[in-house]
């Protein structure tokens, strides 16, 4: 029999996994991050304010775990950050057509080229499903900063895609 905390946590796990996968770009890392996040959440469950949605709180914990992990990897260069396009193909969900598959790989590639703070802001809202206020709390930055990072991320993604398409489309 699960209590309310466990039920809410259980319900959030798939979203947390997607968020962890999007951030870490690695399935095994995402498994580890979510497991660690769940354990920490259980350990610190008293800190969850029951009248508030649980997901932003969980995502804060997850983001801190990811940042520690990610920084270690980039610092030690033990685990290369995988943005190899050929490998990306393997991990993509079965798309309906070759064109979709290429599009997805190109998106993954473009996302990986964003500066970390822009990537995190965009993924927190789009994949994590938080609103801007919740994202501001999770990322521990002002709401206006969330907005400007998302705005820059989107402009940058358009630019990257435009360059990749070889078009001379002007981006403001």
């Amino acid at each position: 029999m699960m209590n309310k905390f466990q039920l809410e946590l259980k319900k959030s796990l798939p979203d947390l996994w997607r968020y962890a996968f999007a951030l870490s770009r690695d399935r095994t890392n995402a498994d580890d991050i979510v497991q660690d996040c769940a354990e920490r959440a259980v350990r610190k469950r008293d800190q969850w304010q029951r009248d508030r949605p649980i997901k932003p709180w969980l995502m804060t914990i997850l983001l801190n775990i990811y940042r520690n992990q990610y920084r270690r990897d980039t610092y030690l260069r033990l685990v290369p950050i995988d943005d190899d396009q050929s490998k990306l193909h393997e991990r993509l969900p079965a798309p309906s057509s070759e064109q979709d598959r290429i599009e997805l790989a190109a998106t993954a590639h473009a996302i990986n080229q964003l500066p970390p703070e822009q990537r995190e802001a965009l993924l927190t809202v789009v994949v994590g499903g938080l609103d801007y206020g919740e994202a501001a709390k999770t990322l521990d930055i002002p709401r206006g900063t969330v907005m400007s990072r998302i705005s820059r991320a989107r402009a940058r993604l358009r630019q990257i895609r435009a360059l990749e398409n070889g078009s001379v489309r002007r981006i403001k």
């Binding site: 996968f21 399935r27 995402a30 498994d31 997805l104 998106t107 996302i111």
Partner: peptide, 15 residues
């Protein structure tokens, strides 16, 4: 694209 990139079904399975 971002939504498609990270599969909901897979997330269910893995958690």
């Amino acid at each position: 694209m971002l939504d498609n990139l990270f599969s909901h079904e897979e997330a269910e399975l893995r958690t």
